[in-house]
């Protein structure tokens, strides 16, 4: 697991909450810092890709493990 600066547990939350919480958490972070997100919504995989493309915050990692989804997003 790569290093990260903050963690957001969005487990149990459904669309669009994981994205909205991630956006809110990123807003309080510095450029270059990395946010680790845990989600259980299967839609989050595509949504975080789209979020990253449209906001310019780099999606460094996206993986599934044991029914949970993990993302690393670097704030631009």
């Amino acid at each position: 697991m790569a290093d990260f600066d903050q963690e957001l547990d969005a487990s149990g939350l459904n669309c669009p909450l994981p994205i909205l919480r991630a956006k809110k958490t990123l807003a309080g972070m510095e450029g270059g810092q990395v946010l680790h997100i845990i989600a259980t919504d299967p839609g989050a995989i595509k949504d975080f890709e789209a979020f990253s493309k449209q906001t310019g915050n780099e999606l460094m990692e996206s993986k599934e493990e044991g029914g949970k989804f993990y993302f690393l997003i670097k704030k631009s």
């Binding site: 669309c15 669009p16 994205i19 909205l20 956006k23 906001t55």
Partner: peptide
């Protein structure tokens, strides 16, 4: 509300 909040989050 879902589309508005998500779009706002995307900028």
């Amino acid at each position: 509300f879902i589309l508005a909040s998500t779009a706002a989050a995307l900028g």
